[in-house]
């Protein structure tokens, strides 16, 4: 088997295992998160970002050939409109594209249904792309902008500051949860 395929499979297994254990198999975790009743979802994501942020930029600074960055373009209309549609989708479905598969793998009926819906949505997008591209994707494309590229700041120190801020947010969310529980 092609090495890339095997790497994809191994990476996916680790990712799926961790997502399942973090509690994303149940579709109500998203719902509770959107109602700000449960910050589990946010805390898992923020922790993952902090670890990835520090790790990737440490490697990127001392051994730049060892790590692959791939920043997505900020084409304003597509990212905003797509994000708004995406938000409606996760509120209705209780999953996102990754966790729907976790639900499917855990044998939750909604997960099966959401994955099938996702495949239908993918087909619809394939057909809609030629129409949407000139309207929402090509105009107002600001390119691959990042916080260091905007401020002209060095990557690793900026990453450490952002990571520290995110840790602050995680601690703050924990405090909020305790307050909510004692009420």
């Amino acid at each position: 088997m092609d090495m890339r395929l095997l790497l994809g499979l191994v990476t996916g297994i680790g990712f799926g295992f961790a997502l399942q254990r973090a509690g994303f198999s149940r579709c109500n975790i998203v719902h509770r998160g959107l109602w700000l009743k449960d910050f589990t979802m946010l805390k898992v994501m923020l922790t993952a970002i902090v670890v990835g942020l520090v790790g990737a930029h440490l490697i990127g600074t001392f051994a730049p050939d060892l790590v692959h960055f791939k920043v997505k373009s900020l084409y304003l209309w597509g990212v905003i409109v797509g994000g708004l549609i995406f938000g409606i989708g996760i509120a209705l479905g209780g999953y996102c594209p990754g966790t729907a598969l976790v639900g499917l793998g855990s044998g939750v009926g909604e997960g099966v249904s959401a994955v099938l819906g996702g495949l239908a949505g993918a087909l619809a997008f394939i057909f809609a792309y030629p129409v949407l591209k000139p309207v929402l994707i090509e105009p107002a494309d600001l390119g691959k902008v990042t916080i260091p590229s905007v401020f002209g700041s060095p990557a690793l120190p900026t990453a450490l500051i952002v990571a520290a801020l995110l840790v602050g947010v995680i601690v703050g969310l924990g405090r909020l949860e305790q307050k909510g529980a004692s009420r």
Partner: peptide
């Protein structure tokens, strides 16, 4: 509802160029 949600989250993610994993994580 999960089917409709799935439809919208993939359509929206593809329009935006990523989902919770690609864009946020």
């Amino acid at each position: 509802r999960a089917f409709l949600g799935g439809f919208l989250f993939i359509f929206g993610a593809r329009l935006a160029g990523g989902c919770t994993t690609g864009h946020i994580l």
